[in-house]
Design a protein around this nucleic acid. Structure first.
Length: 704
DNA sequence: GCGGACTCTCTTTTT
DNA sequence: GAGAGTCCGC
């Protein structure tokens, strides 16, 4: 079942264990077996074992595989993401930090809105301090374990950033909300400042195991230190070559220097790759070799040579999408299922042309990530209604729906509501109860029918008792308030999709209620899940679909066939990372490495000569990561054959779509060719100098 | 307060 | 180029 290295790691004794596991080397399998070993051979109590991972997806997979090995739901082993486990702790202890135990989580949209409001109230224009810069900076502080009280002064265009951080935290607390980073930071604050809670948490588990350890940031590191300081039974698994969350504060040093940080640690190496064909591994190794500052290691192939990875150069993003579809059809022909084919891109935006072409050619696809299900307007609205109905709704949720559908409460009215509500000193739900009794002034009068409706539906549900709808009144409230009608009025296609989403939410609530979740637990799940992955799993019959997702989301997954579109300068490596210098580029290279190593049998890389962004046209060069690779490693398909040729290439090999350089205009791409011989003219789109029509004979163009 | 016209800004990646 | 945010006339 396990190879010797895996077995050694799985059956290692107590104390800190570092498992350096290359891509496809059976990492999760080793963790699962180690947990099994702890329980079966050392008699560890399952509920005193904690398994932590980074994404919901890998947490779910771990759970599933534990159930297979140990049976009945993993035998009670506690597992989840850092965020989910932190939330469990906080639901128990958050009052020690001055939060109500029923606090809610703020999502990124509301967080951004809150930040914007703060900046606006202080007359700080976005060109002086961009809201997303402030958010990033605050997150950065939180990842480093800094609260407003101990963050060193930081000025930005004369603005006191620490003060804004403090204001933001106060606003969050006033709204009884935490952001994602707070979940982890606040657990650490509990353990830093409340010895009794620290002790309780420290003795809660006997063993802690962390997957994807290369992606831990300092606050998560401290979190682990607090939790494991007593028993030091910390097993971490990871691969420094797959560290791709530097922008979220992840610090590769935690894994590179694990043995110094945790004295007495034992190192295990898993270097045999069971996933990819040898040719795919050769490409992956050739790419990652260029990175310095990594554990030197060689992934050994255990599978045969297989097919050579391909690289196709395309004209633009639509040509790219069509070529990808052709390749998918070819793979289908030789027997691959759609669900074993994945398209992994650098940026979610790249999915648009792919989706369009897949729809045209009837290739079923599934987008993972992108605009999360729980971030959709209608879902947030519906949940706000539902939370208010279940008395767990807060001010943000009341304000969200107070004029949806239209109740004649505009901007000024909403200000009034807010002022009245905060003057009352009540919770949003208590205040609504007051309105229901008819005590309302000004704009609040317009909310009286809503308030009364809530009271009415609640008592209906109570009377019905066991017969009340499983969705706990979601459908009832959305119909009675006219919210569904307002969706209906939005225009056919749009409203159909939105109503469909609301129905999906309803199903999901029903399932969760049948699993005996409380409304608050359901809201937690929704907040942490963001996307609908878990929901679509529970839906009727699954259509066999091609998966599309970002490279980041693909970490930890594997497919028979993998397409990596947009392997270009500006996209992979991404433009934003180019500005960060060498470390940014190294992380981008790891992203490509992660992408390639997802594949078992086939890899196709594509790049485009022309790509549109924000309505602007770009002429990217092929990515530096693959440009210099030899043809034995990466087979480049002849680009010219796929171009609809209106004219023959010149003797120099210049053709439509060729990348060229001009002595004074610089680099560009050939848009068209006319005439022949000495009379030949070309139209060139230069990267910097615009479009020019040139006599080929005199232009001294060079292919690049 | 509302709706239409206009301007402006983006998302690189996730919990 | 789309979606959000802003301004203006009704």
């Amino acid at each position: 079942m396990l190879n010797p290295a895996q077995r050694q790691a799985a059956e290692a004794g107590d104390g800190p264990q570092l498992i350096l596991a290359g891509a496809g080397s059976g990492k999760t399998r080793t963790i699962v077996y180690r947990i099994g070993h702890l329980i079966a051979a050392t008699g560890a109590a399952p509920h005193r074992i904690l398994a932590v991972s980074f994404t919901n997806k890998s947490a779910a997979e771990l759970k599933e595989r534990l159930s297979l090995l140990i049976g009945d739901n993993g035998g009670g082993v506690v597992s989840g993401t850092f965020h989910a486990i932190s939330l469990r702790f906080l639901r128990r202890y958050a009052d020690a930090l001055g939060y109500p135990l029923a606090f809610q989580i703020i999502d990124s949209d509301d967080q951004k809105a809150l930040i914007k409001r703060i900046l606006k109230a202080r007359n700080i224009a976005s060109d002086r301090l961009h809201p997303s810069y402030l958010i990033n900076w605050i997150e950065h502080c939180k990842h480093a374990g800094l609260t407003p009280e101990n963050t060193p002064e930081h000025g930005w265009n004369g603005i006191n950033m620490v003060e804004l951080y403090a204001i933001y935290q106060n606003e969050l607390k006033r709204h009884e909300r935490m952001d994602f980073s707070d979940l982890i930071l606040n657990v650490v604050l509990l353990m830093r400042h409340h010895p009794d809670i620290a002790t309780a948490l420290r003795v809660r588990f006997d063993h802690v195991l962390v997957d994807e350890y290369q992606d831990t940031n300092p606050i998560q590191h401290e979190w682990l230190i607090h939790l494991c300081s007593e028993h030091k039974n910390l097993t971490v698994v990871g691969d420094d070559d797959q560290s791709i969350y530097g922008w979220r504060g992840a610090d590769v040093r935690h894994i590179l220097e694990f043995e110094q940080l945790w004295s007495g640690a034992t190192l295990h190496r898993l270097q045999e790759n069971y996933r990819s064909s040898a040719n795919i591994l050769t490409l992956a190794n050739a790419v990652i070799r260029e990175n310095s500052d990594r554990h030197e290691k060689t992934l050994k192939a255990t599978k045969g040579a297989g097919e050579k990875p391909d690289w196709k150069v395309c004209n633009d993003e639509y040509d790219e999408a069509r070529k990808i579809v052709q390749q998918i059809e070819e793979w289908q022909r030789i027997g691959y299922k759609n669900s074993e084919i994945a398209i992994l891109y650098r940026s979610n935006r790249q999915s648009l042309p792919l989706e369009q072409v897949c729809r045209e050619t009837n290739i079923p696809y599934r987008i993972i990530g992108g605009v999360g299900f729980f971030e959709r307007m209608e879902i947030k609205d519906a949940l706000a209604y539902w939370a208010l109905l279940n008395r767990s709704g807060d001010t943000l949720q009341l304000m969200r729906i107070c004029n949806k559908p239209k109740r004649g409460i505009g901007n000024i009215g909403q200000q009034q509501l807010l002022a009245q509500l905060s003057a009352s000193g009540m919770q949003a739900c208590e205040w609504l109860d007051l309105l229901a009794s008819g005590q309302a002034e000004g704009a609040a009068k317009k909310l009286v029918p809503l308030a009364q409706l809530l009271v009415e539906i609640r008592s209906e549900l109570e009377t019905l008792g066991d017969h009340s709808p499983v969705d706990r009144g979601l459908n009832r409230i959305l119909e009675a308030t006219g919210y569904l009608d307002s969706l209906n009025a939005m225009g056919e296609i749009e409203s159909a999709a939105r109503i469909d989403n609301v129905r999906t939410l309803q199903d999901y609530i029903e399932i969760s209620m049948l699993q005996d979740l409380t409304p608050i637990e359901f809201m937690d799940r929704a907040a942490l899940l963001q996307s609908s992955e878990a929901i679509s799993d529970s839906e009727e019959e699954e259509v066999d679909s091609v998966c599309m997702m970002s490279l980041h989301r693909a970490k930890g997954l594997e497919f028979d066939c993998v397409v990596l579109p947009g392997v270009e300068e500006g996209l992979l490596p991404h433009q934003r990372s180019l500005d960060e210098g060498e470390s940014g580029i190294a992380e981008e290279r790891r992203l490509l490495y992660v992408g390639i190593t997802r594949a078992r049998d086939h890899v196709l890389l594509t790049s485009a000569r022309l790509r549109r962004f924000y309505g602007e046209t770009h002429y990217p060069l092929p990515s530096r990561f693959i440009k210099k690779l030899s043809l034995d490693i990466l087979h480049q398909q002849d680009a010219a054959t796929s171009v609809p040729v209106q004219s023959t290439p010149t003797e120099g090999g210049i053709n439509i779509g060729s990348n060229i350089a001009h002595p004074s205009f610089g680099e560009g791409v050939i848009l068209s060719l006319e005439g022949a011989g000495d009379a030949a003219r070309v139209t060139v789109q230069f990267r910097r100098s615009g479009t020019k029509r040139l006599m080929l004979k005199y232009a001294a163009l060079q292919l690049v």
